[in-house]
Amino acid sequence: MVVANKYVVDLNKPLVFQVGHLGEAYEEWVHQPIISKDGPRFFHSSFLEVLTRTAWWVIPIVWVPVASWFIYNSFRLGLPIHQLPLFVILGIFVWTLAEYLLHRFLFHIQTKTYWANTLHYLLHGCHHKHPMDSLRLVFPPTAATLIALPIWSVVKLVCPPSIAPAVFGGILLGYVMYDCTHYYLHHGQPKSDVPKNLKKYHLNHHYRVQNLGFGITSPLWDKVFGTVPPPSKADAKRR
């Protein structure tokens, strides 16, 4: 059990409808990670519980065909085939910015009311509290759809009809890369320097400076917006 704000969170009971009672203490509580591969129970209902668990391989199986369908629609609507890769790559690049903005301003929004705490815990807080829970690391397709729909609406608004599907298809491919990369940074054992550095960068966000280092697939936008974490004391000594 964890005592916070005079409320006791019982880690042996379903958590979702408990965490809201933490009030202003929720922010501190949720950033005290429990390092265990065994995830907590969220709901009493077995049906709801199943909906919160998603294996990483579900992401490419669901979303790569959807992205391919959107990209094909651009071709069907008259976009020359030699231009398709350009707008798909543009979509992937747009995703990297969306990834950063969502992570910084939505996933790390500070909450203190009962329902705001509860919703935040479901959205992202659970991942910070139990960062090694492998079945709650990637987004369930239903939750991802709720985020994808408004993004598609914006893309349709700013892009010509023949280009919008290719850009959105690229955004979906960028999302697949993001979620699979995110899973790998937690559970993979990289051997080369680039993934090693990305893993270190992301775990630093979890365990040392949670309010900085929002990039997952790249620290690019952290550098642009000034949210790169300062080096640790060990890194500073090595320099």
Rank of each mutant, 00 (worst) to 15 (best):
M1K: 11
V3H: 11
N5R: 03
V8N: 14
V8E: 15
V8P: 10
D10S: 10
P14G: 04
V16Y: 04
Q18L: 04
L22R: 00
G23P: 00
G23Y: 02
E24K: 15
Y26N: 07
I34M: 12
S46T: 12
F47Q: 11
E49N: 04
V58H: 06
V62I: 06
V64C: 12
V64I: 11
V64M: 10
V66C: 06
H82C: 10
V88M: 13
Y100A: 01
Q110W: 12
K112G: 15
T113M: 04
N117L: 11
L122T: 00
H127T: 05
H128T: 02
M132Y: 15
D133R: 08
P140R: 07
T142Q: 13
A143V: 15
A144Q: 07
A148P: 07
L149W: 09
W152R: 12
P160G: 08
I163P: 06
A166M: 06
G170L: 10
M177H: 08
M177V: 15
Q189R: 15
P190L: 00
V194G: 12
N197V: 11
N197T: 13
N197M: 13
K199N: 04
H205F: 03
H206P: 02
G213W: 03
P219E: 03
D222T: 02
D222Q: 05
D222N: 04
P229T: 00
P231D: 00
